[in-house]
Amino acid sequence: MIATAPAALTATRLGRRFRGGWALRDCDFTVPAGRVTGLVGPNGAGKSTLLHLATGLLQPTGGELLVYGERPGTDAARRHIAFLAQVGTLSPGQCTRIALALAFGKWPQLLLLDEPLADLDPLVRHEIMGLVMAEVAERGVTVVLSSHILSELESVCDHVLLLREGRVRLAGDAQELIDGHLRITGRAEEATDDGLPTGLDRTAVVASAVTGRQVTALLRVAEQWTPPARMVAEHPTLEELLLAHLRAPAGRFPDDRFPGGRCPDGEAVA
């Protein structure tokens, strides 16, 4: 995250509750201006809720979300934003193009795309993503793009906001996140349950898996970190990194205060 860049979105203790529970709770994050931010999370994580809060179509239950310093739903905030929702009646292809044209027609500073590609075939998806990115590059628009097609995010996003169960699980510059993680692969240790070497700091492990005699783990690491002996360390791809954080059990890290097993109905708003 570039601290000096002005924020397009600033959330402070942001929360939104629906009848079924909290869709978003105690979220603090900023979305930097001029970047393409991928909003990632499983169904029900609160992605749609977050985007609707930014448009002013939903009001927060607690906390605050500001759009370029303005409250969502005010004339000033609306001027900055274009929103492309999952519009049920739009048929794929042409209609998505029309909706995008409409969104760009506003000359927005901030473009919010709520799973714009969900129903499209790969060719159209590729073409439309190309259109969006060309416009974004030309105009310097800030984009927040929610999706669960992780492979596609990798090529377009330079910033990531990962939501899980209504909480921010991961936020930051894509490259910095990649630099701060390592994937280690090696022969599984027989003495330990998880197959990882005994000396390894378990709090740094995001996710690990044993296949046959081989163990693979994704770790959060500092810059000058030396991998254990006889293990191969590589920086993961963004997709691998995001997948690992999506798979990691809730409460794995101290900043995950949200108890696992609950499923807020954030996605129900879509």
Binding site: G73, F83, A85, V87, T89
Partner: peptide, 15 residues
């Protein structure tokens, strides 16, 4: 029902 209200209300005008 169709979601067009969202489209209308995220343009320039208020509710």
């Amino acid at each position: 029902e169709s979601g067009t209200a969202k489209l209308a209300l995220t343009q320039g005008v208020g509710i």
